[in-house]
Write a protein that binds this DNA or RNA. Sequence first.
DNA 1: ATACTTGTAATCGAATTAATTACAAAAGAG
DNA 2: CTCTTTTGTAATTAATTCGATTACAAGTAT
Lengths: 143, 143
Amino acid sequence: MSISSRFAVGIHILTLIEVNKDRVCTSEFIAGSVNTNPAVIRKIMGMLKNAGLVNVRPGIAGAELAKDLSEITLLDVYKAVNVVQENELFSIHENPNPACLVGRNIQDTVSSVFSTAQSAMEKALETVTIKDVVTDILEKEKL
Amino acid sequence: MSISSRFAVGIHILTLIEVNKDRVCTSEFIAGSVNTNPAVIRKIMGMLKNAGLVNVRPGIAGAELAKDLSEITLLDVYKAVNVVQENELFSIHENPNPACLVGRNIQDTVSSVFSTAQSAMEKALETVTIKDVVTDILEKEKL
DNA sequence: ATACTTGTAATCGAATTAATTACAAAAGAG
DNA sequence: CTCTTTTGTAATTAATTCGATTACAAGTAT
């Protein structure tokens, strides 16, 4: 199974707010760029807001970044949109047999490895910022 | 969303075959340790077999490792049980608006980052072998 | 022939996803 | 104050995936 596209959409939203910073970014406008329903955008935007990445206010059109571009990592976005719970990237099989040597110990052992692997992935996300994404997109457009 | 527990179960199966190598490991016996249905075990075992990690034959009770313990990495198991497709750990949002600067470029940019993050996770899995898992479990039991 | 096992397909309920509709509440314009 | 626009949020829907279960054909040994 794949990690929810909320993450990709969250990145899209933040990137668009920056690139389009001279104009007002309503949920409808953003939905037009992402190609989805405005309510989906508002829901994800609410998560970004709770995480302190974005400023939006009821009744007032438009969203703005709440932090500097270069201080928002993709890990921040990933955590904000809640696509993977802490230490739950991998599922552990529940209730193995405690009467079996392997059954009663495998969960601890495997959890530890899974945790390490998940951390490696998250560290990779931490090295990239929204600024990097914006720069990369503008770069692509030049060619 | 979490990665299917098939992965954790696959690790459990291989570990159990090793730890229990002096006895015959039928799908029913393994299911008893994992605490699931034998058909589930047979399905996963079929995947491990296709990947060349295990020897099983129709009608003949018991499974054996097809490789040395120390030569089976968790990445091998992960790939065998098909829990995550190549470059599909993260979902990309489909059909962003090509008329938008961000919409027409975001997929490439984001895919590249996602691929890097997925690789980091898989590399971590590659550093651990079934032998490590077995050793860790036996170690735990000593205490 | 009988008993046991593997291989595999079909089915089921549960959980999750993204999309959609609907509407209350907030803000601003006239 | 009234009307319009927008955000915030809940409810519903169809599609997808998962693990469990049942069932049975086919292979092997006694």
